[in-house]
Every structure is written in structure tokens, then in C-alpha cells.
Amino acid sequence: MKERLTAAMDKIGLPRLIIGLFLIVFCVGAAILKLPMSMLLSDMLVRFGMNAVLVLAMIPAIRAGTGLNFGLPLGVICGLIGAVVAIEYKFSGLTSFLVALGVSIPLAVLTGYLYGLLLNRIKGQEMVVGTYVGFSIVSGMCIFWLLAPFHNPEMVWAYGGTGLRNTITLESSFDKILNNFLAFNIGQVQIPTGLLLFFAFLCLLLWFFSRSKSGMAMHVAGSNPRFAQSCGINVNKMRILGTVLSTVLAAVGILVYNQSYGFLSLYNGPLMMAFPAAAAILIGGASLRRATIGHVIIGTFLFQSVLVVASPLFNVIVEGSFSEIFRGIISNGVILYALTTGREE
């Protein structure tokens, strides 16, 4: 009996189990406290859609064998640059979103390529090096945001100061461009159709890729580099491919996130972006070596939903904003769990 139980536990995974239980308990709590369920549900959908692409960005990195991509901020910065360029030239609506994508994707390809070259020289230490490469680029970019020659008054400090603002509103550009596309209501629950469709579209692309020759090669290179070599696969090339894809998805992911959020946050905004994304995919049941689209969907949904429900619940029960603390404990706790229980090696 006990063995069976542990076997079942292994299959579900402790993080998924705990977060799932949290979600159930919180939902019951919310029902008891008569919190507006429709609003919570709408929130869950939006938060799911806006974060899911960033979580999706973890897949190519894990599949290619470089582990959780803690260098995610690199891609995020590419996305932000794209957005800032689109605003600077006063594009609006869908055009501005497409321009932002058009600028950031090539930039992310280049960044990912260089980052991939770097990761190939430090095999086995990708995560810690990636974290600090990410941190240092983010803090280096702070100087760039401060000095970059942008002029659009929407973005630069109104009086006195130099450089771009900390947060830039997207009202005139691509605010909610995906969320509102074909959006409709079921009762009181609003469905952000465009957002979900866009995510589904990216999942589909990734799924097709994983069944292609390169996709298979990348997967093989990630799961067993020596086996891959014996099949004639160029392992280093596949790791670079995975890093490029991950960086591009991060760039697209932050644009999706921002359009839903309505603001860009520059400077230290991207600093900690990688950790919640990593936590979400781990909650979904992924490990440092294995990740699927299913893990992304389950993990993002569980993690974001728990946060959505927790926040008003905490506000009712205790003073102050504890959802931030709650989020921090969950995301770092889950990553710690993955680091210290890895079956691999």
C-alpha cells in the first residue's frame, strides 16, 4: 500500500501535488468567503495566457540539455528593445505589436546564438553561469536605458531626468492587443481568446518542431549527448539551436506578457523573470532533463491560478500584501526541490 502510494506520488510529483492541494484549499476558502468567482476565473485565464509563453521558453533549453534557462532575461531584453523601438516610431495597434516582434526576434536569434556558443564552453555549469550572465546583462542594460537616444515623450522622463522611464504605458501602442482579439464573455467570465489562441499557435509550432528531424536531433542530443554523437548528430549545434529557440520564445513571451499587463517595465524589471517561469514548468512535472508542452500548460495554470486566488484571500485574512511572499516561497522552493532531488547523475 505504502509502496503504491509513493509510486503514485512519484508519478504526480511532489510540487504538483502540493500546489494542486493549495489551489483546492484556496478555492474552497474563496467560496466560503464569497469572493467573486467569475472575476477570479477571468484573472486565471489572463494570467495563464500572459505567462505561458515565457514558461514555454524553458522547453527548448531543457530538451537541448542545457537545463533550466536562467539566462531568460537575455531574451526578455530583446523583447523589450523591440517594444521600445515600436513605440519610439509611434506605431500603434497591431502594427506596433508586429513591429516589436519583427525587431526583437532577429535580435533574440543573434543573442541566443552568442549565448549558445558560450554555454557550449561551460557544459555542466549552465544554470549558475546563466543566472549571473543574465543578471549582469540586465544591470548593464540599465545604463543603456539611461543613455539610449530615445525621444518619444511617452517614454522619456517628463522633466529634468535623462533616459527612459521605469515603466512605460502601452496605451497608444499594443495594450491588450491579443487579450481583446475576439474576446467574449461566458456569463461573467471574460475569455481572452486572442491571447489563448496565440499561445496555442506557439505550442503547435513547437510540437511540429519536436517531430521534425532537427527537433528529434535536439531532443536526442539533450537526453544523451554520447548517443547523439554516435548517431552523427552535432551536439553543440543542437544546444545552440535550443538556446536560440528559448531566447526567441522569451522575447515573444515578454511582449505577450506586456501587452496584457499594459506596461513595459525596464531597468531591473527583467532581473528575476527566469525564476517564476522555471518554477512553473517544474510544478507542471518537468525535471531538469525532461519537459513537455503538457508540463507547461499544467504548471502555468496551477501556479498562476494559485497566485490569483491567494492574493484576495490573503487580503481578507491578513493585512499587507502576502501574495508576493507566497509567490517567492513557492517559486524558489520548487526550484530548490528540483535541484536537490534530481535523479539524474
Binding site: 536531433a217 536526442v220 548517443f227 554516435s230 548517431c231
Partner: peptide, 28 residues
């Protein structure tokens, strides 16, 4: 080549039999 290190080099132990059989021919 059938490697002496079956689990290390010879197989993708967590993948299906069919993938193991075809992957080399697919790639090369």
C-alpha cells in the same frame, strides 16, 4: 557500431524501442 557501453552510449534508455531503432538512420 554497437557500443560496449550499452546504457551510456548505445541506447536512449527513457525512449521507445522504435525511436531507438530508427533515430540513427533518420539523422544520417
Amino acid at each position: 557500431f554497437v557500443s560496449e557501453d550499452r546504457r551510456g552510449v548505445g541506447l536512449l534508455t527513457d525512449e521507445s524501442i522504435e525511436l531507438n531503432i530508427v533515430v540513427a538512420a533518420m539523422q544520417s
